Each structure stands twice: as C-alpha cells, then as structure tokens.
Amino acid sequence: MAVLSTGGPTPPPTGPAPRRVLLVSRDEELDSLLAGRRVAAHLAGLEETGDEARPGGDGPPPDVALVCDDDAATRRLLELGVPVVRLSSGHRAAVEPAADRALHRVHRPGWLPGPWPATPGGARTTGVLAPARSARGRDRHGSLLLLSLWGVPDAEADPFTSGPLRQLAAEAVRRTQRCEVVCDTRLDRVRDALEGLDGVRVRRAADTDVDALHAGTELLLAAPTLGAVALAQARRAPLALLPPLGDRQRDLAERVARAVPVPVAADPHDPSLWAPGEPGAPDPWAALDGAADDLRGAQRVARTLRQLSLAPL
C-alpha cells in the first residue's frame, strides 16, 4: 500500500537528543593528534561538537569531553561542570597527576617493559591506542617518514633536520620511489631541509590522515613515539625507528628495543634498514601475539566517554 505525502511539515524527531562530546588535542604533537583521532573513530552514539562548545565559546557546554594532554583545557572544562577524560597520549617514564575530578587515562602498551612508578590519582593505563582499521592496501608503494619534533630541543632538532633527515628521505626515494614526510611541528624548517628532493612530499600532521596514508605505503620510518609504534604493531607492518631525539624518545626507543627487534635508521645506506619491507621478511611483532586484547585501548577510552556522558561522576 503506497503512502502519499500530505505536503505538511516534517515532524520533529522523537527521542532524546544525542549526547555531545568535545575532543581536544594538541595540533603540534603527533601522539596527541593520533590518540584523539583513534578514540574518535569509536564514538558511535555520541555527536562530536566543535569549537563553539570550548570554554569561552558561544555554544552550550558538551555533555562530556576527551582532552588529550591539555591541562589548561581540562581545568576550564571542569570549572564549567563538564565531565572530562584526560588522556596522556605520549610516552612518559613517569605519570604526571591529572586535574582533580578528571578521569586520567595513560597511553601505554601492556608489553612495553618497565619499571614504572605507581600511577597517581587513580590514573589507568589504556593499552595500545590502535587505528580503527588494520587493513593495508594491496598495492603499497613508497615510504612514510613520520617525524615528531614536539618537545625536542633545538640543539638536537636542527642538526637532524639539516643532515640525517635529508639523507634518509633521499635514500627512501631511491629504494621505494617516493617518500611522504609527515611532521607535527617546525614544518617550515623541515620543508627547507628537504627542498629540491624529487619524490619527496612534506605534510603537516594536523592536516593529514596519518593512519590512512600509512595503509598505502610500503615502509614506515618513524620517530620513537607511541602513536607510530601502535600503528605498526596493529597492522603487523615493518617499522624502522628514526634516531631518537630528546629524552622521551630515547627512553621509549630503549624500552621498545628490549621487547621488539625494530631496526634503527642510523645509517641511511645500510641495506638491513630497508629489508623489513621485502616479501618474506620476519614479522617483528610475532613475539607480542599474546597481547591481542592490548590493542583495544581506543575502544576502552571511547566506552568510558559514553558511560560518563550518561552518568557523570
């Protein structure tokens, strides 16, 4: 039986309005960006709200907020009465205390070797914040060079970008035909260092879907960051770590080396650096097979946000 339209106004939707979530992360920090995006991919049932819901904006406050690393935003949202999940996205040898009344979550793979100090203030570790999609393209080619210079002293960042970075990008093009360079901060400095290299493209991390870009590339060269390690682990993909810059990267690189045989790109012309991209190469992540549940960190944080939006503390 056909139902004819009466031409009248469309009735308003029935049922409760969707709960609104605000996502805050640092655009200048690779780990912060990746953590926020990976959690957001699992927020079905929550409506993401924009800048108008931030403290000082024109819109009503959100029902719940995920704040990656930004203590000032955490405090302002708590003052507005917004329940907050405060996520520490990057590697820390110790865990800093979170603002009062925020639920503190710490991105830390379960397999990453300690020792670790006690987490203060009820902070909980998440496991691995993995990308929502683990599949990679069949026709992968080229290299992705994922660079994080957040918090790196100038005395280390400048010599690396002017020397080893250019050599690595040039060798990546020679070996894999192209190289996508994605960095979080000091973008102009990186562009200048790589100027004139054919086959090299430089992108800003805040404007790039890093996880999607990685799905179509053959080899990942990455700074020692949790977001990059999680990306390679979840996809069982080859990874070579860039020489660590700054104390945090050095500490993380040392811990990863104790658990996973990941090569370090100290010499761009070392053939073994490029061997993980070859067919039949050993899987460096095989030793971590027992930690499959550890890959569900993003889902766990998203579940906490949904629960908090319905029943604030």
Rank of each mutant, 00 (worst) to 15 (best):
P97A: 10
G45I: 08
V264A: 12
L22V: 02
D58G: 13
L241Y: 01
L241P: 05
S272V: 02
A302Q: 12
C179Y: 07
A291S: 10
P276F: 00
W116N: 11
L4Q: 04
L129T: 01
Q167F: 00
R178G: 10
E96G: 12
A35D: 10
P243K: 02
E171D: 09
G199K: 05
V64C: 08
G216I: 00
R300I: 00
H104V: 04
G15S: 07
A72K: 04
W116Q: 10
R166M: 12
P12C: 01
G216D: 12
L112P: 10
L145Y: 03
P61V: 01
D63N: 09
E48V: 13
V106S: 11
A132I: 02
V39Q: 05
R105L: 15
V182G: 13
A240R: 07
P284G: 03
P131F: 00
V64F: 11
E278H: 03
L226Q: 11
G56A: 04
T161C: 15
C68Y: 02
L149V: 03
T6M: 04
G277Y: 01
G163D: 15
L145T: 01
G246C: 11
E28P: 01
A44F: 07
S5N: 08
A281M: 04
T74C: 15
E278Y: 00
V64L: 12
D289Q: 11
W150I: 03
A206G: 05
R108S: 04
Q167A: 15
T119P: 07
A257T: 05
P9C: 06
D293W: 06
R296V: 00
V200D: 11
L34Y: 01
D251V: 00
L213N: 02
L33A: 12
P11Q: 11
P9T: 04
A93I: 06
R37H: 14
P109A: 12
A35K: 08
R75C: 03
W285I: 01
A232L: 13
D270Y: 08
D188M: 10
G227D: 13
C68S: 14
R255N: 13
E28Q: 08
P55D: 05
L242K: 08
R38W: 03
P224F: 05
V173F: 11
P131W: 00
A40D: 04
L231N: 14
D270G: 09
G36C: 14
G59V: 02
R108D: 02
G216T: 10
G114M: 08
L80W: 11
P97Q: 06
A253D: 06
T225L: 09
R20L: 06
L146G: 08
V256K: 03
V256W: 02
D251Y: 01
R186W: 09
V262K: 09
D51G: 07
T10V: 15
T176E: 14
L33N: 08
G142M: 02
G50A: 14
A205C: 11
V64G: 03
R101C: 02
A17W: 12
W116V: 14
D139E: 14
A130V: 00
R54W: 10
A205V: 03
A157V: 04
L305N: 02
A72Y: 03
V95Y: 02
A230E: 06
R191Q: 15
A72F: 05
G56S: 07
A135S: 14
D283F: 00
L219V: 06
H269C: 10
S148I: 01
R133F: 09
S32D: 13
V106D: 06
